[in-house]
Design a binder for these strands. Structure first.
Lengths: 130, 130
DNA sequence: TTTTAAATTGCAATTATGTTGCATTAATTT
DNA sequence: AAATTAATGCAACATAATTGCAATTTAAAA
């Protein structure tokens, strides 16, 4: 069991993600950080933030991995529902937005044990459809 | 506008995907083909098959890209609903299966134009839970 | 059947993405 | 302030995917 520490890199990366309305990729985070730390460090910080339940990972329809804070989730909820809400992936601007209030309903054969779900809708977001 | 041609590589790759009960990755396809063609060709054939609506792309929760045929979809349907069914991604065996009959319902703010959806559930598949 | 035009392929090179080992640095604990 | 150990940087490696271009193959036209 490790004892996590607060470092400049971790603080800055979390701030970036928390203040972004859309999910960010590793590359986007790196360019925002402007050389603050090594790219390997970013990967490691992201991993740590995930295991500390501060952020979560989203994969868009093209397979691009992004990272997002879950604004609507309380600290409690984070541990319970594992960020199983829906995401919207815009075809034009490529941005991923959390759709906090969408709760899809579905039925699945009971021999499947569902632990997580990824529900990503794609199309045109409000910004790009104007 | 290109005039697609049938080649050995294309035929074999489509046959592989059509006969597989689970979605296949590029690497899996390559090893099955046993040197029939270059890995670049496989990428290009897969792209072509997608644009010809013969197969579709699925991304699992870890961001691994796989390719699958849509067995339950008629040629007609392929053009209409764009393979918008659900997938199940097994944590243990890493296999992706199409859940043909699941149709999730959801409500979304109307300023979002939804064109496609990716609904991937993950957990333990029937094979691995025995 | 032979010719022709364009689609497809192979190969080499390049880019993107992610991981690992290890020595060094920095954050906590005492 | 010193000790402990988490975190970082760097180099190297691994894998996934893309691009340009010359050579090949397909399918249609002659």
């Amino acid at each position: 069991m490790k004892n996590p520490r607060n470092t400049v890199a971790k603080t800055e990366i979390l701030k970036l993600i928390n203040h972004s309305p859309v999910a960010l990729s590793h590359a986007e985070i790196q360019s925002e950080l402007n050389g603050l730390c090594d790219r390997v460090t970013i990967y490691r910080v992201l991993d740590r933030l995930i295991s500390e339940d501060e952020i979560h990972k989203v994969v868009n329809l093209e397979g691009v991995v992004k990272y997002a804070a879950c604004h609507s989730c309380s600290q409690e909820e984070k541990h319970v529902h594992a960020h199983n809400h829906a995401h919207f992936s815009c075809e034009k601007c490529k941005e991923i937005t959390c759709l906090e209030d969408i709760e899809p309903s579905f039925k699945i054969p009971k021999n499947y044990q569902v632990k997580e779900m990824n529900f990503t809708l794609s199309g045109i977001c409000p910004n790009c459809s104007e």
